[in-house]
Design a protein around this nucleic acid. Structure first.
Lengths: 135, 135
DNA sequence: TTAAGTGCAAATAGTTTGCCAGAGT
DNA sequence: ACTCTGGCAAACTATTTGCACTTAA
């Protein structure tokens, strides 16, 4: 198993490479349009559609993570399990460490609840960021 | 403090009442259009805009909770802290109990991280629901 | 050579909003 | 009466998609 779908030979592309590089550079969990602006500085002719198509593919491969923020989606190049804080005012997202030593929040024991197969999980903390709390 | 904004005298309305009743009847965390369909069975002339306006208001008052599912928002009439499971295939959402006795997932100790004020939190579990796992 | 990937623009779809009529206090 | 609230439809905006052209392999 290579992980790809049957019968489809995947190719690399400069665009996808740059998109992933720029995403990984950031700690800010950018929106698609923010990433689009950055990528365009290196590839002036990329289209927003290409950014969306590749982000969708990266997340399908497990190389990027989508963070749903209500009005839009933010992207995270850090795939390792970690949690997020979202400011209810400016809607920006930060990494947030709230895990205890004994893996809290893990589904009750080993078995899944009533046949639900948990593949991943995340905790979202909501509140005010330092900037918005100050104003 | 009544919780309302200054200078605005809030009124009750039949529409909002019915919307909240229908929302609370459900365990299914409906989308706006699903709720719209239900409410229209009791109030045939409600508009989708009214449903949105009232759901927004209910969540602003803390009477309902928005669950971001990517393409759309789901609503939950259960305001008490609890977690959710979302099926990655059908995108439906269920309540999910994964909390331990010692309040896991709470931000590190009493103080907030670097000035971030946590007001609420939730954990989302992602995976396959029994229905989609079977197919 | 061949089909995956892209650029572009138009289309989609969930949600929001302006406006005026209607209703709660 | 005063003004919050709703109905309706148009507007908005993030995202998706069709199509012809490029390009990796």
């Amino acid at each position: 198993m290579t992980g790809g779908r049957e019968g489809i030979r995947l190719r690399r592309s400069k665009q996808r490479e740059v998109i992933l590089e720029e995403l990984r550079k950031l700690k800010t969990h950018p929106r698609s349009d923010e990433l689009y602006t950055l990528v365009r500085q290196r590839l002036p002719h990329v289209s927003l559609g290409t950014v969306y198509r590749n982000l969708d593919r990266l997340q399908g491969e497990g190389t990027a993570v989508e963070i749903y923020c209500g009005d839009f989606v933010r992207y995270d190049g850090n795939v390792s399990p970690h949690d997020h804080f979202m400011c209810r005012v400016c809607r920006r997202v930060w990494d947030f460490d709230a895990r205890h030593g004994d893996s809290p929040g893990v589904p009750a024991e080993s078995e899944n609840q009533a046949g639900f197969q948990v593949e991943s999980q995340y905790t979202m903390f909501l509140g005010l960021c330092p900037d918005c709390a100050a104003s």
